[in-house]
Amino acid sequence: MNMIVCIKQVIDPEAPPASFKIDPAGNKVVPPQGVSPVIDPYAEYGVEAALKIKDAIGGKVTAVSLGTNRLRDIVKKPLAMGADELILLEDEAFDGGDSWSTAYALAMAIKKIGEYDIIFCGREASDWNAGQVGSGIAEILGLPSVTLVKKIEVSDGKAKLERVTDEGYEVIETSLPCLITVSNEIGEPRYPTIKGIMGAKKKEPTIWKPADIGVEASRIGTSGRHTKLLKLFQPVREGKCEIVEGESPEEAAANLAAKLREVKVL
């Protein structure tokens, strides 16, 4: 099994909401001070999904990531978890892209890798929550795609997948190669072992520039965007909470119940 996982470095989505700041002039998020970036948690589920297959039937897992300003120790995490190789698409020309530019560049990198049975993506990334890159890569490469997957079994050149639906889940069979976007229900990503971390330290990622993957300059980064971001802002909280008091929590609770009845909420 040759597996490719697309990963991304993001601002830690678990950072306290108060640390989240926007530079309105640039329509950009200001990275919070003193909070280390992380691998996008959804992408980590993708790494976990690939490693589960590797554990079961063996194979090679290659992580691919696009971006700049990345911290080596952060983007090496898939290696520490058990992936075999890391390819970084690193160039300023890739910056400022949207789902289109990102899917195109990743698809071209995957073409260059050449051999693959399954490509994994997170179901969305925790920064822009676009939820489109996986489907986009599949469309560009002409592959079947199954999204929101929570369980995978591979046998006889096919994959049997459980896909999360609004009612529960469905079991889908797909031919390989295919693209899968992974949902959090796949299970908690494993922690890197000490051995894994030591191994990852010694391993150097492969760096690819736009020319290495044969992309057209007009289709990557800002130039490759299909969407325009007009405005980025933080919703205003009204903050009109009426705190109901009492001598004790029990009394306050009784007063709260009476209040809700009084204003006919209940």
Binding site: R237, C241, E242, V244, P249, A252, A253
Partner: peptide, 30 residues
Amino acid sequence: ANIFREARFGLVGDWKKALPAFTEKLKELL
């Protein structure tokens, strides 16, 4: 807590003490 910026009514206190009393009082009122 951020929830008080979102809420219309709030109670600051230990839920373990407040919730049973809240449920009890509501039962009575309803």
